[in-house]
Design a protein around this nucleic acid. Structure first.
Lengths: 341, 341
DNA sequence: ATGTAAATTGCAAGCGCTTACATAATTGCT
DNA sequence: AGCAATTATGTAAGCGCTTGCAATTTACAT
């Protein structure tokens, strides 16, 4: 029975080149272990047949896939795009492929995605942030899957992390805002539950406020998920308080853009009537007007380092050390001193 | 020799449940072909062991992966995000998984990605646009990989497509612009080579211009790749001509946002001094100010239909019929009549 | 030439799963 | 109760590849 028109296999190549399948396999994977003449013969057979190795078979036989999985909270906005791009480029130079999936910020989906990626043979995983059910870490440990956390650096966490200090970064920005004279501050944060970045950023603001003797009563915090619309709605709520804040610190640029948009719709001048700040420094932050004052995160560098770290964990069998990157404030037009009043 | 701490296999489950591996497999894939008592026994073994089927092994044995691959030109901006999201959601309801990769608008990379996805066992492919080397189509045909094209509907193309009529959509917008009295028109297009969407959109503008007796000399076309920066630079060039256009039609919203940004930097009032339009109606179009007048593309609907079509091609072994979706113009603030003079 | 070490190639055993086919258990009839 | 038809389960042959080990060839020193 002839298998009509299916992809050529190693066997086909081997027959055509007059060698064993082992040799063909070696030509593909460890060419220097094959003498030149044979290698060339095999290569022409490969070319002639348009042979491409079957990935599933390879994974099964070799018990590794040269694939790294990443689960990011969302693909819908640009927050993770640049970092992930750099991550994947760096992986590529080491011969690894990236598989991405998104958890929509839902812990149960993230857990499922982790299992799926493992079942698909991912050799290692990149996760975002530290907050998740402990048994996930146990499971990764048990299965001996190297994993790394990005977007949040914590020195003593269960897994090594490559990222920045969310708390300190936001505290620095809050210091700056308070230093300009703002005393009534609104905060539009992402949902803290299961999201250490959101939680730590708020903590940073609270720390800075406390340092400057600002009462918690003058700090209004709204939690909402990271969408432009929600930033706008939260801004509405903040501004409809009896005493309006003079500055609104947002958990990320997406929320800030929403706030900015609503401010404009309300006829408010930013930063004269109210200051608005973001976090992340995504492209959008430069495009809106007034351009957002925000915290710049070295996304590309973070992605690149995460990839290097993960590859070294994979290839040196090491546990990974992690690294902390610096952020800095980017001053644009959306932050100014409060209006006299 | 004991395999220390590796993932449990079908065999482990079978032993624990006291059945054959075939029965376990059937429990997982065709539960109604197994009697309830057995099924439950197997299920508890699965739970107890935390068993997850090995994907590679399954693909190899079953010769299908329940995976669909999509190659999109870019992930860097939101153009394809929403449609792809809907595509993946719909696939999910049919039990399929989506694997996405990006070609960076490079034909040779796209070709490589196609091969990679096939090697990884994709059961079917989603491609964007019709323009690509003919041998790719031959190859897909030869390997009997169902494939579908999105973002551009062409009734008689090699492969079925789900999308809209790029030419007609842009012609409609150009008609509107010309109808407002614009006679000198600038066009900022994506690179046409290998991109039928870009090509057809320009054709639409040219058609409309011809219909209204506008000389090709009054139509300045700049081609550049789809990045905000490039939109800005192209706008610069258009406005530094001896006779400035009164309206600038952009190949997509990303370019338009760049143009808009530069216009503002140049101190031009949009639309009083110059009108700017986009194409796609991504979220960004609503956020910028003035908000972009653009062509709304039903991205979600397109993604959903593409998924349905592909699943039916896969499951009915049919060839696929494709379908044309309607676009419509969204009037916002960036388009107005030309200034007197 | 001859022996030995090193390089090259082949053989064949899996990797974990699905599924055609064979067998065993159950059901429904008469 | 007895038989055929139906349903449930088991047996075992792969799927296409990698890789440890054995066999063969080549290179090199004596």
């Amino acid at each position: 029975m002839s298998k009509l028109r299916t992809a050529p296999t190693l066997d086909d190549v081997a027959k055509m080149a007059g060698v064993s399948t082992a040799t063909v396999s070696r030509c593909l994977n460890t060419p220097d272990r094959v003498v030149k003449a044979t290698r060339e013969r095999v290569q022409s057979a490969v070319d002639a047949l348009g042979y491409m190795p079957n990935f599933a078979a390879r994974v099964m036989a070799a018990n590794r896939s040269l694939t790294v999985g990443a689960i990011i909270p969302t693909m819908e906005n640009a927050i993770f795009a640049r970092g992930l791009q750099a991550f994947q480029e760096e992986l590529h130079t080491h011969g690894y492929t990236l598989l991405v999936s998104s958890s929509a910020y839902k812990p149960e989906i993230e857990e499922e995605q982790i299992r799926t990626l493992i079942a698909r043979g991912a050799d290692a995983l990149l996760l975002i942030g530290h907050d998740r059910a402990p048994q996930i870490y146990t499971e990764l440990e048990r299965r001996k899957i190297p994993a790394l956390i990005a977007w949040s650096f914590l020195p003593d966490a269960q897994l090594p992390s490559v990222g920045f200090d969310n708390r300190a970064a936001m505290a620095e920005l809050a210091d700056r805002v308070i230093g300009l004279g703002h005393r009534r501050i609104g905060v539009i944060s992402g949902i803290r539950s299961g999201n250490d970045r959101a939680r730590l950023r708020i903590e940073g603001i609270e720390q800075a406020a406390a340092r400057h003797g600002i009462s918690p009563l003058d700090l209004t915090i709204i939690e909402t998920s990271y969408e432009i619309e929600n930033g706008a709605a939260a801004f509405d709520r903040l501004m409809s308080q009896s005493v309006r804040p003079t500055a609104v610190l947002c958990g990320n640029d997406v929320l800030a853009v929403g706030a900015l948009h609503r401010a404009r719709e309300m006829g408010l001048n930013v930063p004269r009537d109210v200051s608005i700040t973001g976090f992340d420094d995504i492209e959008l932050a430069r495009i809106v007007s007034p351009a957002l004052t925000t915290v710049h995160v070295p996304h590309r560098e973070m992605g690149r380092r995460a990839a290097m770290e993960l590859v070294s964990m994979l290839e040196q069998q090491s546990d990974g050390t992690g690294s902390r990157l610096d952020t800095h404030i980017v001053e644009r037009q959306s932050l100014g001193p409060p209006a006299k009043g």
